[in-house]
Amino acid sequence: MIALRRSWLLVLWLLALAVVGCAPTPEAEWFAAAQAAHGSADGGEGRAALEDFLARSVPPGVQSDDARVVRQDAAYRLARLMLAEGDSEAAETVATSALEEGEKEDVFTANLYVVRGQALEALGRPVRATMDYHDALLINEVLLEAALAEDGDEE
């Protein structure tokens, strides 16, 4: 009888371990939160969800450039929503803050220059806007050349 009780305790203990073992890591949870925020944006309730996601700290296990990509994309999406609501100043602030996290020659950094240019244009600052569009096009040119070269290789 005692052995039976012990074995049940053991089974419960192993089940608890299995639950702990199957639990998502903070990193996986963070990526899931990003996807959920974008999902909310698709449903038209994205601003608060994206703001909440950007307010979250990045788990220490996420490589810094991977985190930058996810955060800059969420910031681009948030700034686009803010612009659509007429909140150009907030859009400019969000885009600037996201660019300060690091700039790379990739589509995410270029998108931030595009949306910040749109915000500056809406705020009546066309010169600054043009400079941002120019920066966006510089990155875009590099990426487009690479993409076209790859397409040519495939043909």
Binding site: D65, V107, G117, Q118, A136, L137, N140, L144, A147
Partner: peptide, 19 residues
Amino acid sequence: AAVLPEPSSALLQAQAAAA
């Protein structure tokens, strides 16, 4: 950093147009 999928030329053309 992770090796991410390359953006398509259609995406980049849309980005250039927006800029």
